[in-house]
């Protein structure tokens, strides 16, 4: 089911949190709302769920206008960042909660809960209580609980933020494959650009309550339309006052087209090597080399190189032209 936002605005105590947001999240897609804290992304998610009222604009789920419907009538699965487990209920009862509300008969309810616990691999934890689960298990319980009512839309607020790095990586790819398997329209809020790039079909980048850019992760990464997006999605460096991705710059020992510069620092991060250079007028750029490139060049402090971009046009310039064409 699609989610359509039409001119959604929201203020809290006179400060504008969302400013005229219009967008459509396609059926069956995983959309990531990406932005720094305070960009309004969580508020937008809560507005879609009906947990926060909007000031103006419309929210449609498929053909249905739900702008004035309360959360309980929207039939949307929602997971909070803290997973909000019902602390006094067992894992089984947590997952069964929505089915009980729908008055699903006991036998059917049991079968459905067992099916869901199998799906999130918590079969053996049905009788446990939330405080006896690990963070990752709690998150999977919250997902099962949200999926129990068979929603056509799933909203996840910073779903991996509270987990440690290893569990986070595993859960990300698991959630991704589960979402594809179920084909459920999913909107996920995150401030972590690598998470958004990895998991989402489409990015919606928010800054100060406005949409900066939308599109496929790889496209937006290569063709950011604003400096904000360029800097938020990945590293940028400047040469002749133009922004480039550091891997788009190359180094050579001689050549005419390019800027002559001296190496001032070499940072080795295992798989990548960062070379910082400064030209005669004191402007500095940095170049990202792969391990192999660095081996061939063997840059060291004080060495002189010619720096030039692989492509004639800068990052933002490319993005704007492509955007205009598409």
């Amino acid at each position: 089911m699609t989610v359509s936002l039409d001119g959604v605005s929201k203020s809290f105590a006179k400060s504008l949190v969302l400013d005229d947001i219009t967008d459509v999240f396609a059926d069956g897609e995983m959309t990531a709302l990406l932005g720094p804290s305070g960009s309004g992304k969580s508020t937008l998610l809560r507005i879609i769920a009906g947990l926060t009222p909007l000031d103006s604009g419309r929210v449609r789920l498929g053909e249905r206008d739900v702008t004035s419907s309360p959360a309980r009538e929207r039939h949307i699965g929602f997971c909070f960042q803290d997973y909000a487990p019902f602390r006094h209920l067992s894992v089984f009862a947590n997952v069964a909660y929505g089915l009980k509300v729908q008055r699903v008969p006991r036998a059917q309810r049991k079968a459905r809960v067992e099916e869901l616990l199998g799906l999130v691999r918590l079969e053996d934890f049905a009788d446990r209580y939330p405080h006896q689960l690990s963070g990752g298990q709690r998150q999977r319980m919250a997902l099962a609980r949200a999926l129990a009512i068979k929603p056509e839309i799933l909203l996840l607020d910073e779903p991996f933020a509270a987990l440690d790095a290893q569990v986070r990586g595993e859960l990300r790819s698991w959630v991704r494959s589960l979402q594809k398997e179920l084909g459920i329209t999913t909107v996920l809020v995150t401030h972590d650009q690598s998470e958004a790039m990895e998991i989402a079909d489409r990015l919606v980048i928010l800054n100060e309550g406005k949409i900066e850019q939308t599109g496929k992760p790889s496209f937006v990464y290569d063709h950011p339309s604003t400096d904000f997006v360029a800097g938020f999605l990945g590293p940028i460096t400047t040469l002749w006052g133009i922004s480039y991705r550091p891997h788009e710059l190359e180094l050579s020992l001689d050549g005419d087209e390019g800027e002559k510069a001296t190496v001032t620092d070499v940072i080795r991060l295992g798989f990548e090597v960062r070379v910082v250079l400064t030209n005669q007028t004191g402007e500095s750029s940095w170049v990202q080399l792969t391990h192999d490139q660095a081996k061939a060049l063997n840059p060291s402090h004080g060495q002189r190189y010619v720096v030039r971009p692989r492509s004639a046009r800068g990052l933002i310039e490319q993005g704007r032209t492509k955007q205009a064409r598409s």
Partner: peptide, 24 residues
């Protein structure tokens, strides 16, 4: 301390305010 996330989750699962009060 417990916040309102449990109550709001119950609302998204279809529970009425009275039900949320008594069950959560």
């Amino acid at each position: 301390e417990i916040g309102d996330h449990q109550e709001q989750t119950a609302a998204t699962l279809g529970a009425s305010p009275i039900r949320i009060f008594f069950t959560i």
